[in-house]
Amino acid sequence: MRRDEFRKAFFDASDRVHTYAVWMIRNREDARDIAQEAFLRLWQRCETVATQSARAWLLRTVHRLCVDRIRQRTRRQEVSLSMLPIDSFVDADATTDWSPDGDLRGDVIRAVVALSPEDRAVVVLREVMGMSYGDMGEVLAQPVSTVKVRLHRARKRLRCRLEPLCEKRSVR
């Protein structure tokens, strides 16, 4: 990628890169720092990254930075006090049946956010970002077969988390 193509790549990918970081790290300040760090790294490695793969490269970098940050948190036994509220993920104009008090959409978001980072990554890449198995493999640096298995397991775990909530809702 040429340096003069960076600006376009930045504006093309900034929303997705930041959104992925927010879902993964669940803290707006950390997500901003990670997204910025990813773009600065891309700038430094412009010559080695092809223009068409810049977005995947950025998401892969963000993924690694998020995993590192989560590990640091775990080591330091940090409790994130500034976890994002659920409405950070939801566009109020686009919702009809959502309210912060807790309904289906809020429950789904909470369940995804509560998954392990590995499970959360595959679910977010597939369901929020709409990526194919191949693209997910590039981001996660894993073969497609592994991505399929991980996604399937993550969906099962997500279902386990959601089932009691859904049953409770149907009883109400």
Partner: peptide
């Protein structure tokens, strides 16, 4: 439900 979530801009 997840597709109804929004992109979160920088």
């Amino acid at each position: 439900e997840l597709q109804a979530t929004r992109m979160i801009p920088m």
